[in-house]
Design a protein around this nucleic acid. Structure first.
Length: 166
DNA sequence: TCCAATATTATGC
DNA sequence: GCATAATATTGGA
């Protein structure tokens, strides 16, 4: 497998990092986290990667400003397990401003008692914000957790006018 | 193959 | 309300 391509996305909230493979968008990192390795020596950038990056940038900025994104680049989930793909697909289907409980997601994938596993799958989500893992709340209305830091989850939810318990 | 960990939830006190 | 068990999935020993 060829080395991944990492490109910065500048937003009012800071510089995110987008990671691409030959299949599509593979991951997003929050500003300062820099989990992915930066490649400042960008070789010839494939045309489609540029196009993906453009879409990803617009989508990210839209979400950060509280608006739904128009389009999304193809997502590379080839390394994910089938269960994780199911969970993330459910998350993508959650409309802006709506939330779902971990157990609710579990029900929608036909495994109501897999709420715990759903939490794990959310934590394993490599593409936060775009795959709206922040719209998953606990059953009692509390925030669950968030891989990139709960502060981001709070900020995103407030931006979507979602109320939650603390 | 088994064991421990996890961004939960339901139950009993 | 708080402590405890149960549940599905995953990753490492």
């Amino acid at each position: 497998m060829k080395p991944d391509i990492v490109l910065p996305i500048s937003t009012p909230e800071g510089d995110f990092w987008a990671r691409y493979t030959e299949n599509g968008l593979a991951g997003i990192d929050f500003p300062g986290r820099r989990r992915a390795v930066r490649s400042h020596s960008t070789p010839a950038l494939p045309k489609r990667v540029k196009q993906w990056h453009l879409q990803a940038t617009q989508a990210l900025k839209s979400v950060l400003s509280g608006r739904p994104f128009k389009s999304l680049p193809p997502l590379d989930w080839t390394e994910a397990t089938p269960f994780q793909q199911k969970v993330w697909r459910v998350m993508l289907s959650i409309p802006m401003g709506k939330t779902l409980a971990y157990g609710g997601v579990a029900s929608r994938i036909g495994n109501p008692s897999a709420c715990r596993a759903v939490g794990s799958a959310c934590g394993a989500n490599p593409i936060p914000v775009l795959v709206p893992c922040h719209r998953i709340l606990a059953g009692n209305g509390g925030l669950g957790g968030f891989s990139g830091g709960l502060q981001w989850k709070r900020r995103l939810l407030e931006r979507e006018k979602v109320s939650f318990r603390e």
